[in-house]
Structures are given as structure tokens and as C-alpha cells.
Design a protein around this nucleic acid. Sequence first.
DNA 1: CAGCGCTTGTGTATCGATACACAACTAGAC
DNA 2: GTCTAGTTGTGTATCGATACACAAGCGCTG
Lengths: 342, 342
Amino acid sequence: MREVARAAGVSPMTVSYVYSRPERVSAETAARVRAAARALAYPGPDPTARSLRRGRVGTLGVVLGERLTYAFDDPQAARFLAGVADVCATEGVGLTLLPTTGGPGDVQRVAEAGVDGFVVWTTNDDDPVLDAVAARGLPAVVHSGPSGRGLPVVGIDDRAAAAEVGRIAWAGARRPVVLAFPLDPGRTRQLLEGPDVGEIRFPVTRARWEGLRSAWTADGRAPGHLRLAVCPVNDAREGESFTADLLAGAAPPDAIAAMSDELASGALRAAAAAGLAVPTDVAVTGWDDGEAAERAGLTTVAQSLREQGAHCARIALGRPPAWPEVPGWRVVVRATTRPLGH
Amino acid sequence: MREVARAAGVSPMTVSYVYSRPERVSAETAARVRAAARALAYPGPDPTARSLRRGRVGTLGVVLGERLTYAFDDPQAARFLAGVADVCATEGVGLTLLPTTGGPGDVQRVAEAGVDGFVVWTTNDDDPVLDAVAARGLPAVVHSGPSGRGLPVVGIDDRAAAAEVGRIAWAGARRPVVLAFPLDPGRTRQLLEGPDVGEIRFPVTRARWEGLRSAWTADGRAPGHLRLAVCPVNDAREGESFTADLLAGAAPPDAIAAMSDELASGALRAAAAAGLAVPTDVAVTGWDDGEAAERAGLTTVAQSLREQGAHCARIALGRPPAWPEVPGWRVVVRATTRPLGH
DNA sequence: CAGCGCTTGTGTATCGATACACAACTAGAC
DNA sequence: GTCTAGTTGTGTATCGATACACAAGCGCTG
């Protein structure tokens, strides 16, 4: 820039104005400067230097609790991110995805990220990345995540929603199973009988499990009869294969509450493959009310992850809504569950 | 940082070393500095200042030719980005999505983006954003995009692949239709009869159309009989509704070559709804060989957008492979097309 | 004790731009 | 002719860190 100024015969300050506040400089001078810039192949003010001086980067950081590629593989994350992206586009701000690999480098990357704020997508209670985010002192928000680090949390009341959808899923059931997200970053596939809540390190998984369990025990049914099938990956394929195994097992489930529409869709496919009737032989519920749920006629919990993403983005950009909003949810009853009176 | 140095009774330089090269400083001093930092709530070296001095930001910029939210709605973009994300995670680099709205702000945002390189996802020939990317002088790469600005282009030979899949799709057909991506950013839904190639501003759309057309005319068939159905959105719903309209129209297609598996899936659904047999009444082909294609038994063009994304990322990070790699493709013949001899 | 290498702390210069206050000059008002 | 206001260009002082070269201290070798 210094060289451009010299070439155009003006001060560096004038060159700066040509780029950042063109109206501040005469048309004639501006033209001369632009010509000099072109001649020298000057690409315009360096964004880094500009950020340093201005104290603003123009980018929102999004931390994904899991491997970065999940953002694109997991439909729920995708819906959430679409909402974040909407707001970023409107505000003319970039969206930086911060990869997390589970290693110690994650913390450092968060500490060194050039962003104006953070949105953290569902993570586990012990994630040190959360501390790193809090330490930066930037505006930040956690989605459905652990609270307690002074960071605001956005998300629906998963426990209450789970309790309500559970009431419907468990109607007339004797061998209920929860098709669940992982309990912890380990992501092992396993089938548990009434696990201890303390074992569950992902708040989302924990809250939904608690809600579904409370719906089960509400009528005095034995807690131990409710099983938790942990799916390492959130997609239909995984839901299908795990359900197929369960159906072929000793105590085939007659009611399945899944933590996502994708897992539920897989369960439906497995049920169909096993020649079972839904909901007579086996009832199924999902979560999110996405396109898959609508197509399959799935009873599910409706919430807008997209709106929640937008909400998070606004908070992390330092433009929180005047009123604190609590995202809503409701249970959509369709054809995959038995009537309640049953 | 200056204050931390004073509080710890050392020079700023020492504080810098504590953070960036801890092995360079004695354990004792480092502890003292860290204590002072904690006492002053110093969040660690400012990433912006560090980037300025180091000349490296630690972030890869990804430009999407269309609205940012498409990244998450369009499964092809998602697969591609997953590959980009893989490499970013491995290299410990962030991934900044640059929103484009089609407005003039896009160019400026690219010019001001704090990134180390650019990956541009399929865009149209006239996109000024490409010039902005080229002007930055950073390592950059365009996927399946317009060439000619001195930027390297990555992508399969769409024309050749389209010609081969077309040969299969058109076997025994009399009323062929191409279910296509948009021709230009306008994204209007329309049905064209042998449009002029010059009208097609998206290189991907153009190359595939050319290939499919050449397959049609190869046997001396009249070019005008091949129609192009332009779908504004790349999803199954759109493919279904457009196909349904076509099947209900005056000249119902008996062969449909879609530019994505998603559009093709929609076409299959519409055919099923119309009570048509596949491939007897209508043949269908897709593109990409994604999960949907496998499940539907779709004849399709197999390519790995994920690998191509990874390849692009490596180039844009300035680590191009020693050997220039050309991504491969092949046609996978399944059950939705007629045998060739027909 | 000279000489060498290793560890550890410190100045200095610089990365590239912008905020701010000020100076020079042109117009128009009275 | 003088004063006020508006336009346009220019210094100066940072923004917050790091590369590099150098110096001091220390332990060893011969």
C-alpha cells in the first residue's frame, strides 16, 4: 500500500481512504490511485491488517463437537447450520467451521481462531473446547449443550418433549427400546438396560433419555424393562441395522422411540423387512419432524433446528434479540404409533 | 500482552515465546508468565495480530456459487464439502464459508476475506466473484467451473461421462428428456427443446447437456426431439413434480437422464405414482452414485465428489499433489435402464 | 583458564493498515 | 474583506504480536 501511495504521488492514508471510504476522496485522486494499484497488481487492503486495526474479523466461528465432516453427514447438524448460514449471509459475515478431532489440538485451534464469536453445536459435558471458548471472552452460545461455563445455552426442553413423545410411543408397549445418540465421544454401539444417567455425557442424549424413561415409569412400570440402544452414527442405515438385530433377538421390541427421524426411518425399514406391521406389531417415533418424518408418516417431535441456528448466530454475532426467545416444540402424532387409550 | 509481561517481570518477547514456543523458555519463567496471564485474564495471543505477523491465517475459504444455505441443502455440495472438511481437519485449518447472495457485496466479501486460499464450488461463467478470487493472488481452485481466469479447475470430464450414460439412457427411447440443473443464476423452471449451448451459463450443466445430446444425435436422431427440463432446485421433490407434469403432458417421456441422483429419485417416484414400469415404460439415469442411487437401483455416473473436494482443498492450501490427478468416473448400470441392444 | 556450545532472556524492527486531529484550500454569505 | 462551512489531503500514533540477532550465564573439555 505504501508503494501504491508513492506511485500515485499521494500519502498512504489517501490510498486507505480510496478503499475503505471512497466518498472521502476526490474522484480524480481515486482514479489515479486505482490506476497505480492496477499497475502494481496491488490486491487491495490486506484483510488481516485491517482486522487487527479495526478489531473485527467479519467471521463467525462454529465449533462442532465431533469430527468436522459430521456437519455435512448429519442431517440435524446440517439443518442447524443452514440457519446459522442464513444469518451470516444476511449480515455479510463469513462462517468458519472449526474442525475438532477429539485431540488436544482442538483447544488450541479454538484459542487461535480468528472469529468474532462462537456457536458451539451439541457437545459433551467434559469437552475442554468449551472452556477454551469461554476463555476467549467473545460472544458465544452453546446449542443444547452443557451449561455452567457462563455461556448461554439455546435449545428446547428436551426432557419435557421426550416425556410427551414417550407417553405416546410407549402406549400398549411391553418391550420398549430407545434408539439413541451416543452417550459419550467414544461412540460405541451398545445395548444397555436402564443405564445410569451419570454415564451419559451428551446433554441431549441424557435429557431425552430421562424424559423417555420418566414416561415409561410414570405408570409404575419397571425401569429395567426399558432398553437403550446406542447408535454410533445418526443415519437411517445405522437405525435399520440395529433395529434388525433387535428384532431378530430374544426380546424383539414392540415400541421404538428414536432420537432422530433418520434413526426412526431406519427402524421402519427394518420392521418392514421383518414383515411387521406398524404400529400394531411395533410402534415407532422420531424426532425433528424433517422431510423424512413427513414422508414416512412418522410420529415425531417437531422443532426448528434451522430457527435455532439462526438464533444462535445472532447471539454469537453480538446481536441478541431484545427478548430472550425460547424455541418451541410440539409432538406431531401420525401413523406410526398406537392410539393412547390402548 | 505487554501488561502480562510487566506483571510477570519479563519482556513481551518472553511472553510471546511462552505461547508460541514453550520449549524456548524455562519452565519456571513460563509458570510465572502463565500465572500473570491468569491473574490479568489474558486470553492468549490475539489471533489477528499473530496472523498479520506470520502471514498465514490458518483458514481455507470456500465460495459457493449460490446462496450459502445451498451448501447444506444440496447433497452434492455437501459431499464435496465433506471432502474439503476432511483435509482441513487433517491439516488443522479452519474452513470459512463465504456467503454469496448474488449481490455486489459478494465481490467485496471475497476481496476482504481473511483466508489462505480459495475453493470455488461450481459457478457460472460470468460470476464476478471469480475475478475477485483471481485478483487476490492466493492459491485457488475452481470445481467444475469456468476456466480461463488462470485458476486451476478440478472435475471429471462431464461431457464424456454424459455421452456414455446417455448412450444407455437413450436406448430404445423415442421421447427423451434431460432433467437438468439450472442454466443460469436465474433458476427458472422451464422446458426447452434443444436449447442453444450458449444460453447455458453453468459449465456443468452445459457439459452434461452436450454429452447427452451427442449421445442422442449419434445415431442420426433429430436433435430437436431431445428436451431439457430445467429444475431450479436439486432435490427429489423437484424432480418428482417436474416429471409428474411431463408424464401428464402431451409427449410423456420414455427416457429420463437426470443430472443428479436426487432428481432421478424424484423421477422414479413420479413414474411409480403414474403406474409406469421402469425401465420398460420409462428409463431413468442419475448422476453421482450416492446412497440414493444404490438404494433405488439406479443406473448412474459414479464419481467421488468427496475425493474431489479433498483434492481441491489440498490445492487451495498450497499443497498440490506431486502428480496432477484427474478424478475418475464410470457408469454404473443397474436396473433402471433398458439393455443396450434394444 | 581459554574456548566452545547450550540454554534463556531481551531489544529492535516490522507485519499492513486505519482513527483521529489537523492543515490547506475553495466557496459562498454578509 | 472577513468569516463560516465544506471538501480533501496528510502526519502521527497505534492495533498486538513475532523474526531475528544478540548477549548473558553456565557447565565442560583439555
